[in-house]
Design a protein around this nucleic acid. Structure first.
Length: 423
RNA sequence: GUGGGUGUAGCUCAGUCGGUAGAGCACCGGAUUGUGGCUCCGGAUGUCGCGGGUUCAAGCCCCGUCACUCACCCCA
């Protein structure tokens, strides 16, 4: 093959797509019930949007963005995440002027130039949801309840919710200082990566996997114990509401997020069955983001779900393709002509029907009908046409009856429609 | 950006000591002149990733290269 796809950007083929469609339909259904409406924004934005929202010093902005100049010289970037574009749109169209609360969701591809591995791709897909305009902890709990419910209804195995609070511009800087001071004493004990993190992102040291680092930071100051009063009560109320809604969670004090805009509540949905990329959804509150982007000072909270990762988890549990109601098997020119006309007529009426187009033997036609898992087969042969009848074969029962050509189509429609409505 | 693993039929993979390529599944046909699945019989399909080297001879050994993959980093 000469031309192949781009590394880390995958085709989703028939056979896999059914899983994706199912995941998307469930999301629309669940999010819809919680009052969210879909928003679609472009996959390309001005580069500056991401620099200002995600953070200049994050890995995403520093080395993972697909950035290019368009013909006018504007620097544009394929979106590496969904929240910033949605906020840009929210501000640009002044959605806050129509309704003090906006609940939005989006589905689509994101792009990050990373080395691909299991569950991590250069083009990947997210389902995300955002609530803007409410800082009440009830909303934090409701967002998590909705997320948990989504995973329950899609039957994703082996998931656990972890929550944390990252504080706010009031308390985080102080905590950061305290942590840096603590780490300074133990720099020698930390791994090479953590010595680098010490300057770039000290909070990250807390969730390092290296045993030596874990040991050295056992007594490190905890963010949760250094929250200001506002953040502390907010977090406690989130937990209370989660308990009241029977949402299972654990508090993970060492959970860190990769984007700079998060404040207060942060969370991840973790799985144990996916190798290294174990987060299948993540998000948090971003109370300063909208103002930072030039909008009104409105609080927000949201999350993104990694669709590839969900599809991997569902893995072998293939969703069967739709089952044809009727396969038309024909013999002879007249039969084929009549069959093709009937086929098209049924398809025009929304019935999934199939036939063989290349004049194969009856045996071959039935084999194909069986392979497609067809419910019934109509056999239109020369003998039958002369006598004004056709054979209608029910594949599951291996039974067959002779029916009159007069009223054939309406009889088929009646039977198929009553079955599909009944089920 | 760093490290490991793997590249052979559409798919999953065998291939011994270097001696000219195989299985299962899938596909097509037949056993049944016009009846699916099960069974049996038959059939088509290969740039052994690519390029070079060693050799009488390379899928196998050596060098290079590309792709895929897993992990680190990072993250959905």
């Amino acid at each position: 093959m000469n031309i192949t796809g781009i590394k880390g950007m995958n085709d989703i083929l028939p056979g896999d797509i059914e899983t994706w469609q199912h995941l998307e339909e469930q999301a629309r259904q669940v999010f819809g019930a919680f009052g969210y409406r879909e928003i679609r924004v472009p996959v390309v934005e001005k580069t500056d949007l991401f620099c200002r929202s995600i953070g200049e010093t994050t890995d995403i902005v520093e080395k993972e963005m697909y950035t290019f100049s368009d013909k006018g010289g504007t620097s544009m970037t394929l979106r590496p995440e969904g929240t910033a574009p949605v906020m840009r749109s929210f501000i640009q169209h002044k959605l806050y002027a129509q309704d003090p609360v906006s609940k939005l969701y989006y589905i689509g591809p994101m792009f990050r130039h990373e080395r691909p591995q299991k569950g991590r791709y250069r083009q990947f897909h997210q389902i995300g949801a955002e609530v803007i305009g409410v800082d009440d902890p009830k909303i934090d709990a409701q967002v998590l309840a909705m997320l948990s419910h989504y995973f329950a209804t899609t039957k994703i195995p082996d998931v656990a919710l972890q929550i944390n609070s990252l504080g706010c511009p009031e308390c985080r800087p102080d905590y950061r200082e305290a942590l840096i001071k603590f780490l300074e004493q133990r720099l020698q004990a930390l791994c090479a990566d953590c010595q680098r993190r010490y300057t770039s992102n000290p909070l990250r040291v807390l969730d390092c996997k290296v045993p030596g680092c874990k040991e050295a930071t056992i007594e490190a100051p905890a963010m949760l114990e250094n929250l200001c009063i506002g953040c502390d009560t907010h977090f406690n109320q989130v937990k209370e509401h989660l308990d009241a809604l029977s949402v299972d969670y654990t508090v993970n004090q060492r959970m860190v997020r990769g984007l700079d805009y998060y404040t207060k509540t942060t969370f991840e949905m973790i799985t144990g069955s996916l190798g290294a990329q174990n987060a299948i959804a993540a998000g948090g509150r971003y109370d300063g983001l909208i103002k930072d982007l030039g909008g009104p000072a409105l609080p927000g909270i949201g999350f993104a779900i990694g669709l590839e990762r969900l599809a991997l988890l569902l893995g072998e549990q293939r969703i069967a393709p739709p089952r044809p109601e009727l396969f038309i098997a024909t013999l002879g020119e007249a039969g084929t002509k009549a069959g093709f006309a009937l086929l098209t007529s049924l398809q025009r009426q929304g019935i999934l029907a199939e036939m063989e187009y290349t004049g194969k033997s009856l045996k071959a036609q039935l084999r194909r009908a069986d392979k497609l898992n067809t419910r019934r087969v109509l056999i239109l042969g020369e003998d039958e046409l002369e006598r004004g009848v056709a054979q209608l074969r029910y594949m599951d029962e291996s039974s067959q009856e002779e029916i009159d050509l007069n009223g054939l189509e309406s009889r088929l429609l009646r039977e198929i429609n009553s079955e599909t409505n009944g089920a």
